[in-house]
Nucleic acid binder design. Structure first.
Ligand code: MN
Ligand code: MN
Ligand code: ZN
Ligand code: ZN
Lengths: 154, 154
DNA sequence: GCTGTTAATGGAAATCATTTTCAATAAGAA
DNA sequence: TTCTTATTGAAAATGATTTCCATTAACAGC
């Protein structure tokens, strides 16, 4: 009964195989863990989480897997200024999860928000067009974040 | 004649002394170098640049000075994803230099732009107000950057 | 289901940016 | 000039991420 979720195919199976990657136990476990959290985990966070159930999985493999997932666009990688990279599912079974972040400069808490996303999209589209024309720069993505103090720290 | 610029007071003198810091040769040299470039230098870039004229100045001091300058708001510190922090004068003798960045994911070139800054400001103000109300988050700053391919790489 | 090829794994060692330590030096108040 | 103490620079330490490499496991083809 346990681990039943690992028998059949997963929503990311196709994408994964399509890129020529093998589906291995560590990769399934890591993807599972990512699917079940909405935190912004670091590689080590991930390792510790996974390690409780699967002590065999090494930190190196976690790093490698995260890098692959970023590479095929399933994961987003962030730097929130605390000296380690943090990751978050870019796309779930239901589709995109586009949002931006507020980072507390005191306790490092990261808060997702989707407010103003529509207005942002307008501006970003406009900017992307204008900038790619004016500076001849082909824009593929963007990153926006606010820094400040969260409710508990202010 | 050379180094005359270091005799008198500089535009940053007051701010610097006001924070209780001593004005030392390494600090003057580093600030001078920063004033004369519009690149986005890393600590090591800075060290190498300064080292040509002042071989005595150590990398440690460069790191320390940059950190102080960020602390008092004279410098902005960025992470453009190439594994090292990069710095740029936040404020010149003439005042603010607010702008955002486009980062080439192929050659790591960083391009400043000020286009759409006004529209951005409107959106950011609106967002800051809305978010601080809704999420009870006190916003002090933001970071926006576009990623893509520069003219030479696309 | 077995087999062979080869990608994937994990522990140890290496890397690399940044920080810490500490004895020597220099800024600036008096 | 003198005295106090912040600042400096070399070397060592740190900590996240990568690289090495011998072993293991996916899975395509039988
Ligand atoms: Mn998020
Ligand atoms: Mn800039
Ligand atoms: Zn906080
Ligand atoms: Zn480029």
């Amino acid at each position: 009964m346990r681990h039943r979720h690992r028998s059949g195919h997963q929503w990311w199976d196709g994408r994964f195989r399509g890129c020529g990657y093998r589906i291995t136990v560590p990769r399934q476990v890591i993807l599972d863990a990512l699917s079940k959290t909405n935190e912004h985990l670091s590689a080590e966070d991930m390792y510790l989480k996974v390690h409780k159930i699967h002590p065999g999985i090494g930190l190196t493999t976690v790093y490698r897997t995260l890098e692959i997932l970023v590479g095929i666009g399933l994961l987003s990688k962030f730097d929130f200024g605390d000296g380690r990279a943090r990751y978050e599912l870019a796309e779930g079974p239901k589709g995109e999860r586009h949002h931006h972040h507020m980072v507390c400069t005191s306790c490092n808490r990261v808060i997702d928000y989707t407010d103003f996303i529509d207005e942002e999209k307008d501006l970003l589209n406009k900017a992307e067009k204008g900038l790619s024309k004016k500076h001849n720069f082909k824009i593929n993505g963007h990153s926006i974040q606010f820094y400040g103090l969260c409710s508990k720290c202010s």
